[in-house]
């Protein structure tokens, strides 16, 4: 487990201020290649901001983010995505007026080298079409492929959201509360699905459901008031007294 392979994602002394409010106050963290790394913490700790900084939605106030060897801090989201980092959103973020198939296909366009092409038909890209069908099957929406995404049920939309995130074989995936708003059964099913997806990839996940966290993650970081107070295996985190006091204790 403790091999010395280079980290897939490396964060160095990251800061983010909004005006006078310091939301992220110096995060340094290495995410190893192939690991499933969960970030937990109380509400308002800055978890979503942290993800928004990594994925390029906000530019950091100071600090560095390295994806492999490339410095991606302050890059536009689409450039970060092209370098192999893909993310999902806490609030479902899909193309409501388009069909499920179209949604997934849009996510596969850039990785499938369709680019800004306007001289060929989209349906002419057979590999993209086939991959879209396979992926829709994988997320269990085959029966709904022609349906408008806006008409799907909540759980189906969450599945579509994750489907769009994993499309295109990004090396690093960020999941922002993938099970938010699901009922117990759906969460269990979904956790199994996430485990399957994570094979061969590096995954970072913000999650509130501790059962999901402890069943999926091999590393856990605890974020409190914009700082990481502990990082370790799920077991270590469970035992850590500081974490128990700051977070788990308050939760129970």
């Amino acid at each position: 487990m403790m091999t010395a392979s280079a980290p897939a994602l490396s964060i160095r002394d990251l800061h983010k201020d909004f005006g006078a409010a310091q939301i992220i106050r110096g995060i340094s963290l290495d995410v190893r290649e192939g690991s499933f790394h969960a970030v937990i913490g109380p509400n308002g700790a800055g978890k979503s901001t942290f993800f928004n900084l990594i994925s390029g939605r906000f530019a950091p106030t100071s600090g560095k983010i390295l994806l492999g060897d490339t410095d991606i801090s302050g890059m536009r989201p689409y450039r970060i995505n092209r370098l192999g980092l893909s993310r999902s959103f806490q609030i479902t973020n899909i193309f409501n007026e388009m069909s499920v198939f179209e949604n997934i296909r849009c996510a596969l366009m850039w990785p499938g080298r369709a680019g800004y092409c306007f001289w060929r038909r989209a349906s002419g890209y057979r590999r993209i079409g086939a991959e879209a069908e396979r992926l829709i099957d994988e997320i269990g929406l085959s029966a709904r492929a022609g349906e408008k995404a806006g008409n799907l049920s909540y759980a189906e939309q969450r599945a579509l959201e994750v489907g769009m995130t994993i499309a295109g074989d990004a090396r690093v995936l960020l999941f922002d509360e993938p099970t938010a708003g699901m009922n117990h059964n759906e969460v269990e099913q979904f956790a199994g699905f996430l485990r399957k997806v994570a094979v061969g990839r590096t995954v970072m996940m913000v999650e509130h459901d501790m059962n999901v966290v402890f069943s999926l993650a091999d590393r856990v970081s605890v974020l409190v008031y914009g700082q990481i107070i502990a990082t370790g295996t799920p077991e270590e985190i469970r035992q850590d007294p500081a974490v128990r006091e700051a977070y788990l204790g308050a939760e129970a």
Binding site: F95, E97, M98, M109, W110, A114, F118, R121
Partner: peptide, 25 residues
Amino acid sequence: SRSPLGRMANAVRDNPQRVEFLGYD
């Protein structure tokens, strides 16, 4: 309208922010 550009234009219409996270400007 049926080319990749046309399809991505529909995506931009529905949700420009999401498009940015799919590799497109």
